[in-house]
Every structure is written in C-alpha cells, then in structure tokens.
Design a protein around this nucleic acid. Sequence first.
DNA 1: GACTAAGCGAGACGGTACGTCTTGTCTTCAC
DNA 2: GTGAAGACAAGACGTACCGTCTCGCTTAGTC
Lengths: 193, 193, 193, 193
Amino acid sequence: MITALAPSRKRSNSARRAILTAAFALLEEEGFERLSIEGVAARAGVGKTTIYRWWPTKGVMAVEAFLEAVTPVIAFRRSRSARADIVRQMKALAKLYRGHTGNLVCQMIGASQLDPAMRKAFTEGFLYPRRERAYAVFERGVAGGEFRADVDRDVAIDALYSPIYYRLLASGAPIDEAFLDRHIELVLRGLMA
Amino acid sequence: MITALAPSRKRSNSARRAILTAAFALLEEEGFERLSIEGVAARAGVGKTTIYRWWPTKGVMAVEAFLEAVTPVIAFRRSRSARADIVRQMKALAKLYRGHTGNLVCQMIGASQLDPAMRKAFTEGFLYPRRERAYAVFERGVAGGEFRADVDRDVAIDALYSPIYYRLLASGAPIDEAFLDRHIELVLRGLMA
Amino acid sequence: MITALAPSRKRSNSARRAILTAAFALLEEEGFERLSIEGVAARAGVGKTTIYRWWPTKGVMAVEAFLEAVTPVIAFRRSRSARADIVRQMKALAKLYRGHTGNLVCQMIGASQLDPAMRKAFTEGFLYPRRERAYAVFERGVAGGEFRADVDRDVAIDALYSPIYYRLLASGAPIDEAFLDRHIELVLRGLMA
Amino acid sequence: MITALAPSRKRSNSARRAILTAAFALLEEEGFERLSIEGVAARAGVGKTTIYRWWPTKGVMAVEAFLEAVTPVIAFRRSRSARADIVRQMKALAKLYRGHTGNLVCQMIGASQLDPAMRKAFTEGFLYPRRERAYAVFERGVAGGEFRADVDRDVAIDALYSPIYYRLLASGAPIDEAFLDRHIELVLRGLMA
DNA sequence: GACTAAGCGAGACGGTACGTCTTGTCTTCAC
DNA sequence: GTGAAGACAAGACGTACCGTCTCGCTTAGTC
C-alpha cells in the first residue's frame, strides 16, 4: 500500500470553494473589469499562489465561478410541438438575459474576446451544453415532420438565437416579447416543413 | 449678447493625429488588452494628459483610432435585385470579418462590454451608420416588391446579420460561403414576398 | 538721441498684488511644499505666464509674498542700556518665532536650501535688514562702553541669535524665556566690557 | 498567549542595500530636489512599491541613505583639556562642513522643514547621537573644573555649535578658522570656570 | 484718435514624478 | 509538505504640476 495520502487534499477543495464564491461575489459587486486575483485571494482568505496554481487566468476563474453559481439551465419542455417548446424556451431565455444574468453573460463573452483561454472555457462550459439541448429539440421537430429536413441544425439554431446575442452585445436594442414574436415568426416561416 | 467665450490655445490637430495613429498601430501589434495609454503617449510623442483631456477611456480612444483607420465601408451595390445586393454585401462583409478586421471588431465589441462609453462610441460610430445602409437596401426591396411589406426592418436585418456576429464572438464556428448560402436561403424564405 | 522707445503696456500692479496675496494665503493654508504656481495662478485669477514673467521660481515668489505680508520688524527699543534693548528684542523675536511666523520662517529657510535664488531673496530681503539693526544696537553698546571693543560684531550677533535658529530648524528644543535668560547670560559674560 | 504571528516572506536585505546605495548616489549627483523615488527604483533595479513599503517619504529614505554613507563621526579626542578637545573637534567639523558634506547636511536640514517625518529621522539619527558625545566632553570639563558648573549643558553646546549651522543654513558667511577662533574665544569666556 | 507692441487671461502642450494597484513569481514559516 | 501570507520586480493607472507655447483681448503710450 502506498497510502499516507495528505489530508491537505480536503483543504484544497474548501479553498476552491472559497475562491469561486469570492470570485462570484466580486464579479457581481464590482464587475469583471474590477475583479482581480488579488482581491479574490484576500476575500477568500487564500494565497494568490493557490489561485494561480489552478486557474491560468482571472477570466477562466471567473467563468468557473459564473458556471457554479448560475448553472441552472433554461430547460426545454417536451410537449407535442417542438416549435412551441422552442418558442417557450427562447422567451424564458430572453427574460433571463434582460435581467442581471444578461449583464453577466455580456461581460463573460466580452472579456472572452481578450482572453482565449477564457473564451474556450466559456464556450465549452456554457454555450455548447445549452446548444446540445437545442439540437435535440430541433431534431425532434424534424423527426416529427414539423421542420424541414434539409436545414442544417447549426444554421437553424444560429438563425433563431443569434439576434438575442447580437442585441445583448452590440446593438443594445430591446429583447422583448414583441421582438421575439416577430423574429421567431420570420425564421420559422423558412424553417417549417 | 452673452458670449464671453474664453480665448485660449486651440486643440492641436497634429497631436490628435499622432495619438490615433499610434493607438491603431499598437492595437494591431499588441491587441487591445495590451494597448495602454502610456504606450500610446510614448509612441505618439505626446503627454498622457493630452490623451486624458480628449478621451475618457482607452476604449473610446481605440474606437476612434479604429474608425479613422478602418472606415472603408462594405458598400452595397445597387443592382435590380435588392436580394442580390444584400447577398453580395454579406459575403463581402463575411470575407472581411474572416480576416484581420474581424479580429479587431471582435476585440472592439468584446472590450465594449466592460466599458460603457466605449460601447456607445462603437455602436454609434460603427454599427449604426452601416445599419442605415442596410435599412435602405431592405426598404428598396420592399418597395420593389421583392420583400414582404409586413416585416419590421430591424427584425429582418437582425435575422440576416446576427449569426455573423454570433459566430465571430461566441461559437467560433466558421463564417464561410457554405454557411452563408444556407443561412441566407433560410431567412430569405421567410422574407420574400 | 536714440529714443524711439516702444509704446507698450506696463506691468499690471493689480496682477502682482493678486498673485502675492494668493501665494501668501496658500502658503498659510497648505504650506510651502504644497504651494504651486498653478494653484496661485488659479486662485489669483491670473495666467501662469504672468507669474513666470516676473518670478524665476516659486520660492522667490513665496519669499516676496512672505515679505509683503509679514514685514513688521521686531524693532529694537532705544533705552540707556544696549544690553537691555537686545535682551528685550530677542525675547520679542523668540515669542514671534514660537508662533505661526516661526513656522513660516522655518519653511522659508528650509526651502531655500534647495533653491539658490530663493535663498538669495530671503537672505537679502529678510535676514540682512534685520541684522543691520542688530549691528547698530551692538555698536551703540560698544560706543557706550557696555560691550568689549575687541569683539567682531558678526561674531557677537551670531553668538547671540544663532541658537534661536538652531532650535527652530534643527534640534526643535524650546525657545522659551528660561532658555533665553541662560543663553544670553552666558554670551554676555563674554561680551561685556 | 496572543501571538499568532503571520508567516510570510522576509524583507529583502539586498533590496534595502540597493535602494540606499542608489539613493545616496543620486543625492550626490543630482541633489535632494531632483532625487525621486522613481529614479531610485530604476537605478536600484527595484519596484517602487518596495520603497514605499519601507519608507514613508523620499526624505526619510534620503536620511537613511545619508546616514549609512556618511556616518563617520567627527570624534572628540580625549586629552587632558576638555576645552582643547572641543576646539579641535569644532574645527574638524567646520572643515567637514565647508566641503561636500556641508552641502548635504544643508539639504537634509532644509528639506526636513517641509517633511516632519524626515526631520524626526534626521534629528534622531544624526544630530542627537553627535550631541551626546558633546555632552560627555562638556561634562568632563565641568568635572575637571575647566567649565563652570552652573551652565546648562544644552545652553553651552548650543552656544558653541549653533553659529556653524546658522552660517551654513542662513547667512552664508564663511565658517573659517578665523571666525571659529573668535567665536570660541567669546563663548568660552562665559563658560570657563 | 488711431496705432501698436507688450501685458494679460486662458489653457493646450510635452514631460516628469507622484502614490496606488495589480500581475505573476518567489520565499518563509506554521500546521 | 502543503499552503497562507506577503515581499518582490515590473509596469500601467489617472493626477498634479512643471515650464513653454499659442491664442485673442486689453491697455498704455506715442505719433
């Protein structure tokens, strides 16, 4: 037996929790720009070294803190109509993004442009899992004859969801129900079988 | 008369030019993250005060530098078919964004999420003027009977262009001709009269 | 004749007054260290150029402001006894230096060590005129047979007054009546005929 | 027990040495006025923070640099005659002050007037230790019957030494042998038993 | 009475240094 | 033997002043 494994491992997990908690708190209070590894270390009661050991970048750390705190996904319901499920989910997502979370997502995607590792972490940790679920619903719709079979699922999902992000990140135009209704109507016209 | 405007030394145009030139050069060489007001001042042979006097933020300065250097717009041609003009322009835009400029736009929009003044400057200086031209072409299409008259122009333009920005900023998926063809086909199906 | 002297505007006396008043006010409120030409110009409602035109250094300006404001000399009385006149004057001077003015003199002499032009201005504008009066009294004492005739007046005056400045500038020891009595007694023992 | 002292990295002695060496070099080359913390940091190859961590003021740092470099005291000899020892030491001191060191002392005392912490550092680090030795010699003279027993040692030492500082800092009159002879003769006349 | 050159206020400019903040690395000591 | 505490070199931050430089406006004198 090799045994004698250090009791420090347990401690390192509590440090990890303390760090992510502190990071998320600071992210909310100060915003990503003013978030600093120094500040997180102080607030978490942790040495800076401990942070640098596990995260390459304040951005990656922030993404992880964000994911731990915000994870709750906007799930798709599973009714008879895939179309209805998508519409319902998009509206719930938009509602979420109109609030506090939208601001955080904004900052995450924004900061990601200046930090490749962060971008990878955010894309893989946040966007991809959610997109997988959208694929599933869309394909259910194709299988059920609701949607055309000749439309690429990436093209379809992008067409549906991109304007939410465009308005969030660029134009600043409102992402309200009226807009969503019109937008979805337009795209679904091209998507329906 | 009230007037009584204070006489004083005028703003130096040569300093302004030197600053924007240096800022753009550093933006290209180092990227926005490593761009610093200190660095710009040194390279431009200018006091830091002069920069702070005229720009509230390195972000706003960078936007102005970007606009002065990159302005050349992807113009719409004006053929018989508004549809063809839009397709052509979108492809040219995508080609531009696949290159060096796409990277810069990425950084501009990204950094804008962390700097409200920069976001305002970029939106008003870059996005809005280009969008105006897109409105015009779309409305030409409506007038000419090519496009449905009951689709809001903002909804239409967002549906067409958003995925380019989504792929640029978030998913990282390629913005190639194949994708554009499929995407445009999908949206235009819902847009055509 | 050479003549043909140019017609021109004369130096503005009101500007000079405004500058010296502002300088003295700031000297008192903030101290010499935090006194700045910029601050004086702003407070006096005067262009910086006007200050630079007439004073080579903030130190020289401060000395002039100090002299205009503080000039009142501690005069010697003229009684039968030169010794008594000197003692009386030294005590009055010490009292003055124990107060606010001592602090200003301190700062003037201190700053003078780092600014030769200021040192010249202070020495000639402040110290010399006062010393002349001390010479006069001392020589009256010599003439009247109170003081030895073989003591150099500079040696005598320095011996009497230096400790006041030493305590003011260096040791920080109190310059009170008890000290002065003992000190004067000691020096006069060597000075009396 | 209260203790609980924090474990941490120790102060770097090599950084301290580098800083004081650089500071003294710049003090000599440029003078106190042009001495800057920035300049010292650059020359010492040290971060500015390290200087600010350990010295409150450029003045205090300069005093410490001065003390480390100049410490060599003008020692009193210990002959039969305390008077002779004092005279000899005063002349050696005056010689020192007529040279380069006098200039430095001047600047130290001058700048001290504008920086209380520096003044404390200079007084306690430079003046007091030297004064202690003067006390000792004077008291030896009293014990040996050379000097009057009823003269306060502070009064005596001030009377002897102050004019050196007065001439150094204020009047600018020479501190030569001729002056010292006359001055010492005058004061000792009042001091001798 | 008009002309004209300097004085004047305002404040932009190229700079230097300030004192602070944060980065990423390193060292030390207590548990 | 790990990990908190924090010192360290580096370097950018945004501010305060420096001393110089335009700018128009004002104000003497002289012609």
